[in-house]
């Protein structure tokens, strides 16, 4: 496990970033206003970019610097801005009323999922004194919270951002556990970006134009 030590400054910064990322995921889960939901996602991505930069600094890894820049530019700035401008303003979506459960219920489920993440990973079996021991459960919790956001929100845009939250969780785990992996940081993340861009394109124009207007609660034609 080539992780940072908890005692180092970089390790502390990474842990703090992970906590902020987890809180941002909860904030997303708890926000009914689209603007805030997107803003919290943007904040989460900026923190993730900062965490990536910290790890990049520690390992002196050029690839991770690139990744940090990409995360900041695409996930921290471009996606929130584009979403806000194109979708929220143009389609005048203010509040997401199409939730499948109440906000408080989803927050409670989110808390249970986070607890589950800690139990599932059995932190006591992991080596002590490494950042990974605390950050990996957090990243699993973020993945689960993103999936929960996808399930709770019925609007396709909100579901898309839920998916992007899970991706943030995965990247958090990647920079913590596999900072020196020669391949995955470029190829894996690049493909995620491609997928994200593709989904945005698909979403904003072309085939799912109708979906942008419909909440997916109305998309009930395919059942069974």
């Amino acid at each position: 496990m080539q992780s940072l030590a908890t005692s180092s400054i970089e390790g502390t910064l990474l842990s703090l970033s992970a906590v902020a990322i987890l809180l941002a995921a909860f904030a997303c889960l708890g926000s009914k206003l689209f603007n805030r939901y997107v803003a919290y996602y943007g904040f989460q991505s900026v923190v993730l970019s900062f965490a990536t930069a910290v790890v990049a600094y520690h390992f002196r890894s050029a690839e991770l610097w690139v990744l940090a820049g990409l995360t900041l530019a695409i996930k921290g700035v471009a996606i929130p801005t584009v979403t806000r401008r194109l979708v929220i303003r143009r389609l005048d979506l203010r509040r997401d009323v199409a939730l499948s459960t109440g906000l408080s219920t989803s927050l409670i489920i989110g808390a249970l999922l986070s607890a589950f993440a800690y139990l599932a990973i059995k932190t006591q079996d992991l080596p002590h004194g490494l950042v990974a021991t605390s950050v990996v459960p957090i990243s699993i919790a973020v993945v689960l919270l993103g999936a929960l956001a996808m399930a709770v929100h019925r609007h396709t845009l909100a579901q898309l951002i839920g998916w992007l939250i899970t991706e943030n969780g995965v990247i958090l785990a990647a920079i913590t556990l596999a900072a020196t992996f020669p391949f995955i940081v470029e190829a894996g993340i690049f493909l995620d970006l491609v997928a994200a861009v593709l989904m945005m394109v698909v979403f904003v124009s072309g085939i799912t134009r109708e979906l942008a207007r419909a909440t997916s609660a109305e998309l009930r034609q395919l059942q069974g």
Partner: peptide, 30 residues
């Protein structure tokens, strides 16, 4: 419309699954 809906559902769930699979890949690397 049905094809678009099916495709959306597919790409969303498959990407979620692949995100989890990427997590698995990272763990194996670790």
């Amino acid at each position: 419309d049905e094809a678009a809906e099916a495709s959306w559902k597919y790409v969303l769930l498959a990407s979620l699954g692949l995100g989890i699979a990427l997590f698995a890949t990272i763990l194996v690397y670790d």
